[in-house]
Design a protein around this nucleic acid. Structure first.
Lengths: 355, 355
DNA sequence: CTGTTAGCGCTTTCAT
DNA sequence: ATGAAAGCGCTAACAG
């Protein structure tokens, strides 16, 4: 019995010896120096002799010393962390954006917290509120489709946290943004369909009041106008975030007696849903219906038939946004100039879509 | 001049008043209570009267008090954060996994740090080492394809951080894992090709020494054996992480005088590359070459022709992994039993691939 | 039921 | 060139 206990304690001790985090105190004891000297040495302070610095660095390396991020964060009021808030991640556009963000963050030795709102406004608000307390040095966000008010973001900005909005930006708030040429590219996309002979082009969107939806719709309307085609509000199709219900909506659209002959999907997933519905309804793409879509689908040209896309430079959006954010963090540039970066999308024609 | 300075100060003051984080001290001053009472009230301690609790809660709400995560983390030695370490994010499998992880993390009010290794061992090691110092309460990881030694992970485990490996797991380390039935599903996939008439099936992989590659290859070999087809090492094609060079490799493979009549891609991207190469070489799928692939491509059935897939339950893998991790965090179950969870993949036949 | 205080690990000012 | 000590905001043990 006692032997058992004895071993038990030995075991526990073993665990604890493993678990012992090495901190400045242990390091300094090991070196016979004071805590502050070690700290200074690790920060390459001019106050410390080269000899000592070498010893400290060697020992830190040997014991694999890693400074406690909480102690440092508490003391310096800096987290070395940024937050990325996006509607969803299982999405080619957003996962590419994150890729770009991570690249820059890694270079700057920053950590990246990711949050998903699932297009839910309540989620967005509570996520942002959790960021009020210095958990992050900056925030990158693409608004959820239901964002009604941006008060939560204004509050966050007021607490001194730099925010960069990308792609889905607020209209009623002074802020830095990274976007693409939504109006121009939508104009071109619509024109593309009309040049291919379309007369009744439906515009599919998820959230009518989102900045990008607005701009894309304006581009669509302007193109119609150029070709003297009357704008028909019945061809603006408001979908949502649920694929099943979207397919029902699209089924209804494509079963109308006067069916559209072209689809402009302002979001990738709506184009995909259209494909499935066309398959059900035996509608031939592109003979009976031509489709163009905003999309970052890497297999777009392999689809049957392939999908002509407006492709946003998602990776670059991530990179630019992150770089802009780090510039703001560095300069503590708040209340100053707000930056507006606009990148170019590219229209990728896949021959089988038109003709 | 002096006026200018004056305004300058006013401005700075304004900024600071905005930026003033409210902490327990301010809250307690506002309420005329001690800091500890406020803290206890916020934690719903039995020591505090209902009346006081109400007052405190109301004031905290009013001032939108958020506890400083660094102070709390430092004190409690707990971060309320987990890390997810994956090879890449612009990948249907991994982004779905993250989706599952985030769902669970959000429920548990945890934060999620994401790190990408880009299949680079050096990156993996340095990422893991940065996690030694209590930055996270647990780690979810899928190994990079070049992982040579797992010492960095053993070290991390020894410091007391629970680790769950998913999909790509180490072979030489006692650990908890969440995987899928790679052997069985690969067997079925290979069998599927053989039943469709294939005699020379090439096996494409990215990293030969990865656990999943091994298991998938064993399933492939076992199926060959069942159908009395001799195993040909020349049909094991080692690719890498670069699409361009992979296409060159595949081009070479498909230009052999005795060309394979079936492809089993152990990774989605290799199947896609095969499609592109076949297009170049005018090889008809599936007439001249049948393809099956591990894949989470949501548009697999829209590809031309559609791709038959073994689809791993990526979202569930994420959920299960995260849930297991939180159980370990709660129980501080280290050195104890290691859990091994195995989920089922599903073989999704798309009619156009075979026949 | 409420208040006082020590201390988590680190940085930084000041003293030597 | 090195060390002592205060304090970041919070929690928890202890005192009253």
């Amino acid at each position: 019995m006692f032997y058992y206990l004895h071993y038990c304690f030995l075991f526990i001790e073993l665990i604890f010896s493993f678990m012992s985090e090495i901190n400045l105190k242990k390091l300094s004891e090991e070196l016979g120096l004071s805590i502050s000297s070690v700290s200074k040495a690790l920060h390459d302070s001019y106050e410390i002799s080269t000899e000592t610095k070498k010893r400290v660095l060697a020992m830190a390396e040997k014991l694999n010393y890693q400074p406690n991020p909480f102690a440092r964060g508490l003391r310096k009021n800096k987290s070395n962390t940024i937050a990325v808030v996006i509607p969803e991640i299982a999405n080619n556009f957003f996962s590419l954006v994150i890729d770009g963000i991570q690249l820059v963050a890694q270079q700057k030795e920053y950590h990246v917290l990711t949050y998903l709102t699932h297009e839910d406004y309540i989620n967005e608000v509570s996520t942002i509120n959790h960021l009020q307390c210095g958990r992050v040095d900056g925030v990158l966000i693409s608004l959820c489709g239901e964002t009604a008010s941006v008060d939560h973001l204004i509050n966050l900005q007021h607490t001194g946290v730099p925010i960069i909005f990308f792609d889905r930006i607020p209209e009623t708030m002074e802020c830095s943004t990274v976007t693409t040429d939504d109006y121009e590219s939508s104009f071109k996309a619509t024109e593309h369909l009309m040049l291919a002979g379309c007369k009744k082009i439906a515009f599919l969107c998820v959230s009518r009041f989102l900045s990008i939806t607005q701009k894309r719709m304006l581009g669509y309307q302007a193109a119609l106008q150029k070709y003297k085609i009357a704008f028909d509000p019945k061809l603006i199709i408001q979908c949502n975030n649920d694929n099943i219900s979207n397919q029902a909506i699209l089924k209804k659209l494509l079963s109308r007696k006067v069916r559209p002959d072209g689809i402009f999907a302002s979001v990738e997933k709506l184009a995909i849903s259209t494909y499935y519905v066309c398959n059900d309804l035996k509608i031939k793409i592109p003979q009976q219906l031509k489709i163009i879509s905003f999309s970052n689908l890497r297999t777009a040209s392999l689809l049957s038939p392939s999908l002509t896309t407006i492709t946003q430079p998602a990776f670059e959006i991530g990179k630019e946004s992150a770089e802009l954010l780090f510039r703001m963090i560095k300069k503590k540039n708040l209340g100053g100039y707000m930056n507006k970066i606009v990148l170019q999308s590219s229209l990728i024609e896949r021959n089988s879509t038109v003709k």
